[in-house]
Amino acid sequence: MAHMVRRAVPCGVADLADEIGFEAVTVSALARHFGVKDASLYSHVRNLQDLKLRVATLALTELADQAAAALAGRAGEDALIAFATTYRAYAHEHSGRYAAMRTDIPRDSPAVNAARRHSDLTRAILRGYDVEEPDQTDAVRMLHPTLHGYVHLELSGSFGHTPRPSETSWQATLTALHAVLTDWPSA
Rank of each mutant, 00 (worst) to 15 (best):
L126W: 06
A64I: 03
L48F: 04
S109H: 01
A124T: 08
H92Y: 04
F83V: 02
D138W: 05
A67Y: 01
M101E: 04
S43Q: 14
L126C: 01
R88L: 06
D38S: 13
H44A: 13
A79R: 04
H144S: 13
L121K: 02
E77L: 06
G128D: 10
A39L: 15
L80M: 03
R141I: 05
A67D: 00
L143N: 02
P110L: 00
N113L: 05
A75D: 10
F83R: 11
T103Y: 07
A91T: 04
A79H: 11
D50N: 09
A72V: 11
A56S: 14
D130K: 12
D78K: 10
A59Q: 08
L60R: 10
V112G: 00
A84F: 00
H94P: 08
E93I: 02
M142S: 05
M142I: 12
H94Y: 11
L60I: 12
A56M: 08
D130Q: 14
G149P: 03
G96V: 09
Q136K: 14
D108C: 05
N47H: 11
R88Y: 10
D130A: 14
A84R: 02
S95M: 07
G96E: 01
A115K: 07
H118Q: 14
L126M: 12
A39V: 15
V131R: 11
Y98C: 09
R102C: 11
R54P: 02
A89V: 03
A59G: 03
A111N: 00
Q136A: 15
F83I: 04
P106Y: 06
M142N: 00
D38V: 08
A89S: 13
H44E: 12
A91P: 10
V55G: 09
A64G: 06
A89M: 05
L143A: 07
Q136E: 15
L126A: 04
A139C: 03
T146I: 02
H144P: 00
L63R: 15
A99N: 03
R116S: 06
A56P: 06
D138S: 09
A124S: 13
A72R: 14
R116A: 12
A139W: 00
Q136M: 15
T57C: 05
R141F: 10
A75F: 15
L51D: 10
I125Q: 01
R97D: 04
A67Q: 11
H44Q: 14
M142T: 07
V45H: 02
Y87D: 04
A68Q: 13
L147G: 06
L121S: 02
R116D: 13
E132W: 10
S109Y: 02
